[in-house]
Structures are given as structure tokens and as C-alpha cells.
Design a protein around this nucleic acid. Structure first.
Length: 446
RNA sequence: UCCUCGUUAGCUCAAUUGGCAGAGCGAGCGGCUGUUAACCGCUAGGUUCCAGGUUCGAGUCCUGGACGAGGAGCCA
């Protein structure tokens, strides 16, 4: 018998097929038994009728424990009552074999769970439809990222994960012993290496795990997360924004095309995502500060009003980003942040050294910063001065400074956090659901 | 690091002024020919986070601790 994938079930209406998978849920109604079976590609209802099967087989089916692994053969039929993902089709069981009958004390009941319990059981939680949907969307986001970059002339350059020193002095690093060479640190960005790579390859990207030992305990932070970082020679800040908006639009359109079943199962408002298209609105940091001040003036709630306090020169908090993005229905570029709140390597605005050629892309609906980028500094003397100002070890950056002395050109790049992007696309309220096994300040298990 | 909140059955949560430890879900058994978080009946299931203290009596009050969550800062 032909073994099919559940997500292709519509192609087999009326045919007898087999599926191999796991019993997700079982309900019964006297002489009928309903099994919701998942096979990795989807969820499908299988129906057993007492009159069509031997008494022994019907008893087996109507008592099969949740999560048992099974092979089921039967006839596919369209029935709008049938639940499932994609749903609308069910299998009338004619043959049924058990690979392993699961223990009866499966810990994940089919109901809502608290965060701590769900995360302790992450190895089981990923079997549930919501997590299954999010992680399938994640895979498509990653595929779309690679597809766009690979077809637009970007060369993949894997950058090191073990690195000699802080690339950006502001964040804390995971430290490890490195033989006789002293300390090494887990990478928090591949950008500096990509700045070397562009002088050999023009347009490059790196894509891998990134590590931040910050003691952040919020729904937007992980200690290990995935970041894609494109870097482009002969590219200024305006050109960078054009690249970013095409890139993000491509990702959104592909997820809408290929993961509609998953998005709908999550209850995501698709109309919000369907509005995403080039060009994205662009506002300066100066304008953003003005807008936040206006919003603050209209705010009644004193607590909220205090959270919105802002003066030119301050970085935005989560609250600032949220109120700002609610004024737009597409992702929003904010460019020209104060130099003092950004990393050392950003090119100053012409005639305004207090601001730099940086740009953040803020997702709509309050999901916050999903990309951060800038035009990189090209003057070697100023760069050295900045490294000193930030208290960074000059010796570690010798090679980086040399890049500016042998064919330096205007160049720009950005980093995009995969998990924050997936959280936005899925409408998930916590980033920990967007990676198979999240690492946070309080969790390295399972 | 700081602020706030929380910890009771496998899970989600109740428990009045300090007075017999409870429900729903899940599990097992039985019933029901279309279930969608099914429904109905029965059964099993407890170190109330830990250590002290007050009290005739503590899930509840006090002291200390552990663990967790969300937010701030920082960032993608």
C-alpha cells in the first residue's frame, strides 16, 4: 500500500492509502472511534466503525494510548467535519498496526500548560499543533532567507563561532578556555569578519547561531539565537534600506504562500502580513523622538506616560518601539540614531558627528526590532579613535583596521534575528516558542 | 543587578476570619454510530516548594531560603 504524507492528502480523495505516524488524540462514540493522527507533515482524523472491523481490532483502536506509533491503512474521503491540519479529509480505517503502544502516563495533556512545565517538556511540546506550526514556519523563514540571498548574488561565508574578543563592547560574552592562547569567546556577531569577506567577494552573508550572555529576562531574548548578517561593498545607508525591504518582503510573501495552513492554525491575522510590500516607511531618529513625545503628551495613564519619557540621545525602550510601530501598518525603518547608543564602527552622519548612519527595522504590532544595520565607518583614523573610546583592545582589531588601508569603500550591512522575525510572523507572544530548544538565562534543559 | 508576582493531585487552578485537602482536565474501567476542549457514570491519584517559628489547631500568619515568571537595563 502506498504510504502518503498527510499534507498531500487532498490528492488521494477516494483512494486507499497508508499513513505512518503517532496517535495525537483519541475520542470514541460507542461503535465509532476517532483518532487524530500526526505524521510530521500534518494531522488527520482516522475513523474506525465497529461494524467494518473485527471486534479485536476495534477494541485495539478504541484503547490505543496517546502517542502510540502506528501504521494505518484506509480510504481517504472528503468530509468538512473532519478536524486536522490541513483538515477537511479523513481516513476510514481498514487496517491498523501498532509499532509501539505508548505508556499511559504521557505528561502533556491536551490543554494549556504553564511556561515552566511546557519548557521542561519541550521534547514533547513540539508535538503539539501550535509548536509544530511555528517551527515549520521557522524552517520556511530560514529557507526564504537563503533563497533570496543566494539568488541575489550574495556568497555564503561562514564566520567563526570561537572568537578572540568582543566585537561590540557593550554586551557580555560567553567565555571559554582556548588551549594555550588564553580565553576565547562565543561569537555575538560575524559582522567584522564579513567586512573582510566583502573585499574578496563583494556581497556576502553569514548565518549561524549567536551567543549573548546578557542577563535579559524578557519575552524577546534568548542567550542562543540565530542571526543572518548580509554585508555589501559599495553600498550606502539608503541602498541598505532598499535591500532590507526587498529581503523582508520576500520572506513574508513566501511564508504566506507556503505556510498558510500553519498561520491560520495559529489564529494569525493574515491581512496584516499581506500588507507587507516595498517600500517601507522611513523616519529619522529625530522625527521618531518627536512622535514619541506627541504620543506621550496624549497619554492619560501616568505609568504609561513615565515609560514613554524620552530625550534626544537616549536609546528606545520596548515601550517606545511599540507605540511608534502602532502608527504604521508596515515594518518601519528608523535611521540616524545617536552615535553614543550604537556600536563603534558606524559611519557618522555628514556634518552631524552626534548621529550615525544606522538603521533599525521595527516590526509592526509591537514586535520590536527585527533588524539592525548601518553604513560602516571607512576612515581608519576615526575608527582607531572609536576603538580606544570604547575601551576595546587595539591588538584584536589590527586586521580590521588594515581593511581600511587597502581599498576601502563605502559599505553597509545588517543583522536579522530569526526568532524575532518568526515571532512577528506567527503572532507568538514569546520568542522561546520560535526555536526548537530555547536557551535562556534560566534554562539549558532539555 | 533591580522591581513586581507566583509555587496546593500528572496538568490548570479553588480552599471564607487560622478550623475535615477540593474541582475541572488528563489517566483507568463502563455506556453512547460523527466526535471537534465531546458527553454521562464509576475508580485511582496529595511531603500544600524547603527549614524554622507562633498557635489547642497553619495551605492560610511570621522569619529565612530555594525555584520560577514578567518587566527594567541591554540587545536581534
Amino acid at each position: 500500500m502506498k504510504i502518503i504524507s498527510v499534507n498531500d492528502i487532498a490528492e488521494y480523495d477516494g483512494e486507499e492509502v497508508s499513513i505512518q505516524g503517532w496517535v495525537y488524540k483519541r475520542t470514541g462514540k460507542g461503535k465509532l472511534a476517532f483518532l487524530l493522527v500526526r505524521d510530521g507533515s500534518g494531522f488527520v482524523q482516522c475513523v474506525a466503525f465497529n461494524g467494518d472491523l473485527s471486534e479485536e481490532l476495534f477494541e485495539t483502536i478504541s484503547h490505543i494510548p496517546q502517542e502510540s506509533s502506528v501504521v494505518i491503512t484506509g480510504t481517504v474521503r472528503a468530509d468538512k467535519r473532519a478536524p486536522g491540519l490541513p483538515g477537511g479529509y479523513e481516513i476510514g480505517i481498514s487496517a491498523f498496526s501498532v509499532i509501539q503502544a505508548a505508556n499511559e502516563d504521557y505528561p502533556m495533556a491536551l490543554k494549556e500548560h504553564g511556561a515552566d512545565f511546557a519548557l521542561d517538556n519541550r521534547h514533547f511540546w513540539i508535538r503539539m499543533p501550535s509548536q509544530w506550526a511555528i517551527l515549520r514556519i521557522r524552517a520556511t523563514v530560514i529557507s526564504a532567507i537563503r533563497e533570496w540571498l543566494d539568488t541575489n548574488g550574495y556568497i555564503l561565508m561562514d564566520t567563526p563561532i570561537l572568537t578572540p574578543a568582543a566585537a561590540e563592547g557593550t554586551t557580555t560574552l560567553f567565555e571559554t578556555e582556548y588551549f594555550d592562547e588564553g580565553k576565547a569567546y562565543l561569537a555575538q556577531t560575524g559582522q567584522l569578519y564579513n567586512e573582510a569577506n566583502i573585499f574578496a567577494f563583494g556581497k556576502v552573508y553569514c548565518f549561524g547561531p549567536t551567543f549573548r550572555a546578557e542577563k535579559s529576562k524578557t519575552r524577546r531574548h534568548l542567550t542562543e539565537f540565530w542571526m543572518v548578517e548580509p554585508e555589501v561593498a559599495f553600498c550606502d545607508l539608503d541602498q541598505l534600506m532598499e535591500i532590507e525591504e526587498q529581503f523582508v518582503t520576500h520572506i513574508v510573501k513566501r511564508v504566506l504562500k507556503e505556510r498558510r495552513v500553519e498561520l491560520e492554525s495559529l489564529g494569525r491575522d493574515l491581512s496584516a502580513l499581506e500588507q507587507v510590500d516595498v517600500p517601507f516607511p522611513r523616519i529619522s531618529y529625530d522625527k521618531a523622538v518627536e512622535m514619541i513625545k506627541e504620543i506621550q503628551a496624549e497619554t492619560e495613564d501616568p505609568e504609561e506616560k513615565a515609560l514613554l519619557d524620552i530625550e534626544w540621545g537616549m536609546d528606545f525602550g520596548a515601550r517606545h518601539e511599540t507605540v511608534l510601530t502602532k502608527k504604521f501598518d508596515k515594518p518601519l525603518f528608523v535611521y540616524g540614531y545617536p552615535t553614543q547608543v550604537k556600536a563603534f564602527y558606524m559611519e557618522p552622519m555628514p556634518g552631524r558627528p552626534e548621529a550615525c548612519k544606522s538603521v533599525d527595522l521595527l516590526a509592526p504590532e509591537g514586535y520590536g526590532e527585527i533588524t539592525g544595520g548601518s553604513e560602516r565607518m571607512s576612515d581608519p583614523d576615526l575608527l582607531l579613535q572609536r576603538i580606544h573610546e570604547h575601551g576595546l583592545p587595539e591588538e584584536s582589531f589590527k586586521w580590521y583596521l588594515q581593511l581600511r588601508q587597502f581599498g576601502s569603500v563605502p559599505h553597509s550591512g545588517f543583522g536579522m534575528g530569526v526568532e524575532r522575525t518568526v515571532a512577528w510572523l506567527c503572532g507568538t507572544d514569546h520568542i522561546r516558542e520560535t526555536i526548537p530548544f530555547p536557551r535562556t538565562i534560566k534554562r539549558v534543559y532539555p
